[in-house]
């Protein structure tokens, strides 16, 4: 089935000239650095509801970066990451139900739950590639949605509220500013991990798999196992983001598991640019910004979003982060 193997083509323009590469390398972080600085200063600059939007943007951005990571490294288009996002959130709910309040315990549990689920789902889904993989990840995520939303103890189709935000080592996270910084710190940790893995032999092999899996097999790589590793890492990060989403909303509902979340994460990842480490964050922030702006005028804001997505896919092939970087005069990171 040759036609199943339509590889994801990424437009990576890396200057080959060494001098240009060094200059580009320094400048290429400019867009990222600006954004991180903006996020760090936000609590001092903006009103609280804008800060809240940015916190939310970082949470979804974290998940979107994880989704983008397995596209860039592994060529896997997952349409089921809502499952790991939601499972992370529900882990927080369940942990609170059994009386835990320590985030340093609960968040790792959420990460483990999502990772375990992705290990099972990933090893089944990775028996196929391409289109089938997309459909199967969507299918299994829908199964998770149905199962969780029919458990009455977890609030069924309506979901349940959390009593309060969990604490870190006894320090309360009730303050939105403090929570904002915790999310930012975790986001930076995630970027460090993803960046490191991306430059490792594993990351290189995964990027190779996206370009030409058959070749990587012929070099002796167990491609399926490497892809599964990346898939689980990505799901674990998405689970962490889900846990943070639960803490942010203080409410957990099947809406977090809904397939549309999977689609939105993919849109964020590609809108920001999957070639870029932080593309998902850019995409998430822009999308949430658009949501806030458009819903000023109409409650049917998705009606505008649909065409925007279509136009972006058809005409903006690189994504925002790389485009921004070009504007700032840098190469790619």
């Amino acid at each position: 089935m040759r036609h199943l193997e339509k590889p994801v083509v990424l437009d990576l323009q890396r200057p080959t000239n060494v001098a240009a590469r060094i200059v580009g390398g320094v400048r290429s972080y400019a867009a990222n650095a600006l954004l991180v600085a903006l996020l760090a200063l936000a609590p001092f600059l903006f009103e609280s509801h804008i800060v809240g939007s940015l916190t939310r943007g970082m949470i979804y951005g974290m998940a979107a970066c994880a989704v983008g990571f397995i596209i860039r490294c592994g060529g896997m288009v997952s349409f089921g990451h809502a499952a790991y996002f939601g499972l992370g959130a529900y882990s927080v709910l369940i942990a609170q139900k059994i009386g835990l309040t320590e985030a340093l315990l609960i968040w790792p549990i959420a990460v483990l739950v999502s990772a375990a689920a992705s290990l099972a789902i990933g090893s089944l889904s990775l028996r196929t590639r391409g289109v089938s993989f997309i459909m199967i990840t969507l299918g299994f995520a829908q199964m998770v949605y149905f199962v969780i939303s029919s458990v009455q103890g977890l609030g069924g189709a309506d979901g349940l509220g959390l009593q309060a935000r969990n604490q870190i080592g006894g320090v309360s996270l009730e303050s939105p500013t403090r929570f904002h910084f915790v999310v930012l710190a975790l986001l930076l940790v995630v970027f460090c991990v993803l960046s490191r893995v991306g430059r490792s032999p594993l990351g290189m092999a995964l990027a190779g798999i996206r370009q030409n899996e058959r070749r990587l097999k012929a070099l002796g790589y167990n491609t399926t196992r490497l892809q599964l590793t990346a898939f689980v890492l990505s799901a674990a990060i998405t689970g962490l983001a889900g846990a943070l989403a639960a803490e942010f909303y203080l409410y957990v509902s099947p809406g977090l598991l809904h397939w549309i979340v999977s689609g939105e994460l993919l849109v964020m990842a590609t809108l920001g640019g999957v070639t870029a480490l932080m593309g998902g964050l850019f995409g998430a922030l822009v999308l949430l910004l658009a949501e806030v702006l458009i819903s000023e005028f109409t409650t049917y804001w998705r009606m505008a979003l649909g065409p925007v997505v279509i136009v972006a896919v058809l005409y903006l092939r690189q994504g925002l982060q790389p485009a921004l970087q070009k504007m700032l005069g840098g190469g790619r990171d």
Binding site: S200, P201, G203, M204
Partner: peptide, 23 residues
């Protein structure tokens, strides 16, 4: 070089490391 390096890395260890830097 990276094309070939992928091969030499593969023959160096059956399990590519996630945390060392390839280059």
């Amino acid at each position: 070089l990276d094309n070939v390096r992928l091969a030499t890395l593969a023959s160096a260890s059956s399990n590519p490391s996630a945390f060392e830097v390839a280059a």
